[in-house]
Design a protein around this nucleic acid. Structure first.
Length: 917
DNA sequence: ATACATCCAAGAGGGC
């Protein structure tokens, strides 16, 4: 074996290294001989040094010029950590290191132009920015000899990974050198796939090195008694089982907060960590872990990967993780020292939790991990074409196509699709095609605007162009100048009012002010009160495809750990759960088909049933799906049976149509259309390219057409048996716990109706949550208050904020009674006398009614009786002694007389509020 | 009661 440079050996001594770890030794040879290398080992095995040390050795031995090495890693926190770690070695050898991500101070970033770093640590987005936009620094990249991609398993299945794979090809083409590629990864299923993905068009020899991963771990699985207060039981159990310091993983942000609320009753040394609390609070919590202050930290996936958080004694998982990969990552956060054995516990609540827990632990022991799937998102190709044009000003078609197809992901992108794509981009003026040259189109910098405040309402910040991650609207919680956390905008609009107490980051906060234009909620610390925990909306975590198969094995082997569940089937004379049996359970409002099934097949079937139900029934239908089956709330007919009548061709058509109707497809469409430069409504003819791409992306993520057809064929042939049962099963119960899916209804008024339901919103809030401009929304709202509207709405004045709010007519009575709008409908003085001026629709004469607010409060029916027409065209109030009131009185248009009393009270409350305060 | 996470302008020119 080649001898490492003496200076490196010295440094190892300085670090007190007796030996290099196994993975470090194994990596030396392939890297030193210039091979592209994929290094696979669990966290904590020293993978970074395994790649770094041989590269530093080569850097010492050859006369390298900066930038020599690019180190790419997916998280900002990792960049900060790694920079220090790399700097330790590099600075002692005379090499400069620089980091780049969105939160690095400008000053530090500017430094790299003065002193070019030998090693640059950044994200995929950071590389994108440099190639596309950093005109000067880009030149320095021409010296790059090595690229390391860290945590590659985190990138591979996502658009970020696709983006990176193209970027590497762009880099290679730009510098004209086939640099050496090194990937670092945790245990993965398909090593060869990851390798091809990373190595792309490089013609270097390649090698995969890995350590024989010991799958040893200590794991206990407990099921808690669900009698009594389940939260108290969980808290008590955790208190008895926790070992300082522990990580307590949950599967949602809500649950981390909820669990903390219970645990802090027993012990103050528990903390919360998830993505919606501020960076500052997160780093505090991480510090508490390292210093030993924290007994336990309750967290989500945020702590699955990332920076060193010290020695964790025990991992507690509150309900099973969604996949084996995630289980191993979570467990791997304990026993971090190389030969330490990870120790953990899974707390189960439901029967199916127990099934998943045993299945996951079994799979982990067998060394089975989920396979990654790579899809071919054309929207990312579009972005990369644009990136190349930014880089070169002008790019030949041929060159753009060649670079794209040299990446592993787009290797099969046909010339036809490529041409369709660039012609479409040209049509939308994102690019201009002149002969065989592509250049930037006049719409590009309007869409990707430099100054969002001066831009059009639809324009995006230019910086967003570099990221493939789409972000949702959120409000930032601020206490004075400090960021506390973030809450979904929709949740703020629907549930938060000033004065409320909320719980976030494990602390209570009082809402002081909601600023919708700055998207900021001002809060103050509160020390008591029942804090409401916000709900954040995500995509839904899908469960591993390995689970239903492995759970079937557990049942086949009649494992004693799940004997309670087996008994429930045996005692009901039912066959044990299997992929070959569907138990059709008639439940309260829905039919549940319980079985063991791939989640994507279940999802496809649920969507088909929903589609069939909505075409027969109403818009109130919903369906559910999970690995335990699917359900539909339509009981008139057996829709699954009906499905068996169709032939394969018809089936396929129905499946596509159901998918096109699903919110999953629609949101995918909305997400990607911006990359194509398409704003507003999609046209089924004009925008076929986007529709096709969205359909393919949605299908690969959420559905499975082929497998579903095969599944239905199996039912037809009797290979899958359907058993009707007039009762319930544990798997059926699991299906009913899933959130229902609802049809996407075209037609803006239904969407407005759905959004308004149960609440009252301002125009700005509605426009924000619906993504419709205020102007067109207002026109629609005015239409919807007219008597002929299917969904009747009304507006009133929110006296506290003096804004107009809109709500459903049917909801007004409840809103009047709710404490949220108390001041808006309860006049300060209800003994004053007012005159209501009413005009009928299409009439010019007005009728006046004299009333005191008190009379309305006491007997609203009386004033309704005095109104001479059913529908009021215009209504406002007057004061017999103060004629000015008429001018400031709010006007109400198209009001049904049944709700008029409430609006009169609203007008009085508003006027008195103006007069007296 | 419900369903996670990640990312996001360079660099010239002016003022002190």
């Amino acid at each position: 074996m080649r001898k490492l440079d003496d200076r490196l050996l010295e440094l190892m001594k300085e670090r007190n290294w007796k030996n290099m770890t196994e993975i470090q030794q194994k990596s030396l040879e392939p890297i030193l001989s210039g091979k592209n290398t994929l290094i696979i080992a669990p966290t904590g095995y020293g993978k970074t040094e395994a790649a770094l040390i041989p590269i530093l050795d080569m850097m010492l031995k050859t006369n390298v010029k900066p930038v020599s090495l690019i180190y790419i890693t997916p998280l900002k926190a990792l960049i900060n950590d790694l920079t220090l770690r790399i700097e330790w070695w590099a600075s002692r050898l005379g090499f400069y290191v620089n980091r780049k991500h969105g939160e690095v101070p400008q000053k530090e970033k500017n430094l790299r132009l003065k002193i070019t770093p030998h090693i640059l640590v950044t994200t995929p987005e950071g590389l994108e920015i440099d190639l596309d936009w950093a005109t000067r620094f880009r030149e320095k990249y021409k010296n790059v000899k090595w690229v390391i991609v860290d945590e590659i398993h985190e990138l591979i299945g996502s658009k970020r990974g696709v983006q990176l794979s193209v970027l590497l090809e762009r880099l290679k083409d730009y510098i004209g050198y086939d640099f050496q590629r090194i990937g670092l990864s945790a245990t993965i299923n398909d090593e060869d796939l990851v390798a091809s993905f990373l190595f792309g068009s490089s013609s270097r020899q390649s090698e995969i090195v890995k350590v024989n991963d010991k799958k040893e771990f200590e794991l206990s699985i407990v099921k808690l008694n669900s009698v009594g207060d389940i939260w108290k039981n969980v808290a008590k159990h955790i208190i008895s089982s926790v070992e300082k310091p522990s990580l307590i993983f949950t599967n949602s942000r809500f649950l981390t907060e909820r669990l903390h609320e219970e645990l802090e009753e027993y012990d103050k040394d528990f903390y919360v960590h998830h993505s919606s609390i501020s960076r500052e609070s997160k780093s505090n919590v991480e510090e508490y872990l390292r210093t030993g202050k924290a007994k336990g930290v309750i967290c989500t996936k945020t702590l699955e990967l990332g920076i060193d958080i010290g020695d964790i004694k025990k991992i507690i998982m509150f309900r099973p993780p969604p996949s084996v990969a995630s289980f191993l990552q979570r467990l791997g956060r304990s026993g971090h020292k190389i030969y330490g054995k990870p120790r953990g516990e899974i707390i189960c609540i439901y029967d199916h939790d127990l099934l998943e827990a045993y299945a996951i632990s079994e799979l982990a022991k067998l060394g089975k991990v989920e396979r990654q799937s790579i899809c071919k998102p054309i929207d990312v190709a579009a972005r990369e074409i644009l990136g190349m044009i930014l880089q070169y000003d002008e790019v030949e078609k041929e060159k753009a196509y060649k670079i794209l197809t040299s990446s592993y992901v787009f290797r099969n992108l046909s010339e036809k699709t490529f041409n369709e794509l660039i012609e479409y981009l040209a049509k939308n003026n994102l690019i201009t095609i002149k002969g065989d040259k592509l250049s930037i189109g006049k719409f590009f910098f309007k869409l990707w605007n430099f100054n969002r405040n001066n831009g059009y309402s639809w324009s995006r910040g230019f910086s967003e162009f570099f990221s493939t991650i789409n972000s949702t609207d959120t409000f930032t919680l601020k206490w004075e100048d400090k960021n506390i956390g973030e809450i979904d905008a929709i949740y703020v609009y629907k549930h938060i009012r000033s004065g409320d107490i909320i719980r976030i980051g494990g602390k209570l906060w009082k809402i002081i002010r909601i600023n919708t234009s700055r998207m900021v909620v001002d809060v103050l610390p509160a020390d008591k009160g029942d804090g409401e925990i916000p709900v954040w909306r995500g995509d839904g975590i899908s469960k591993s495809y390995l689970l239903p198969k492995e759970i079937y094995v557990l049942f086949k082997e009649k494992r004693k750990e799940i004997s309670d569940i087996i008994d429930k089937y045996v005692s009901r004379n039912l066959p044990l759960p299997s992929p070959n049996v569907i138990i059709e359970e008639k439940r309260d409002k829905e039919i549940v088909y319980s079985t063991l099934i791939n989640e994507k097949i279940a999802s496809t079937l649920a969507h088909i049933l929903l589609y069939l139900a909505t075409s027969k029934d109403s818009l109130n239908n919903y369906a559910r799906y999970s690995i335990y089956g699917f359900s539909i709330n339509y009981t008139e007919k057996d829709l699954l049976e009906e499905l068996l009548k169709y032939n394969e061709k018809e089936l396929k058509r129905i499946i596509i149509r159901s998918i096109l109707r699903s919110p999953l497809f629609i949101s995918t469409l909305k997400e990607i259309q911006i990359s194509y430069g398409k704003l507003g409504k999609i046209d089924t003819k004009e925008d076929k390219l986007i529709i096709k791409d969205a359909l393919r992306q949605a299908i690969s993520k959420y559905f499975s057409i082929k497998k579903t057809i095969r599944f239905i064929n199996k039912i037809k042939r009797g290979k899958i048996k359907i058993i009707k049962y007039d009762g319930s099963t544990p798997l059926g119960d699991a299906v009913l716990l899933q959130a229902p899916i609802k049809p996407w209804i075209t037609g803006i008024s239904t969407i407005i109706y759905d959004t308004l339901k149960g609440g009252a919103y301002t125009l700005a809030e509605l426009s924000e949550s619906l993504g419709i401009s205020q102007k067109s929304l207002e026109a629609k709202l005015k239409q919807m208050r007219k008597p002929e509207s299917k969904y009747r709405i009304v507006s009133f004045i929110d006296v506290d904020s003096r804004e107009t709010r809109w709500c459903l007519m049917e909801d007004l009575e409840n809103i009047v009674k709710s404490c949220d709008f108390y001041t808006s409908f309860n006049p300060i003085n209800s003994d004053e006398t007012f005159i209501a001026s009413l005009r009928a629709i299409n009439s010019t004469t007005t009728t006046d009614l004299i009333f005191k607010p008190k009379e309305i409060i006491d007997n609203p029916e009386e004033i309704i009786r005095r109104i001479p027409f059913e529908e009021i065209g215009e209504m406002r109030i007057n004061d017999p002694v103060d004629p000015l009131v008429y001018n400031i009185s709010p006007r109400f248009y198209y009001v049904n007389k049944r709700v008029a009393p409430y609006l009169l009270l609203n007008a009085v409350a508003y006027i008195q509020n103006m007069k007296y305060s």
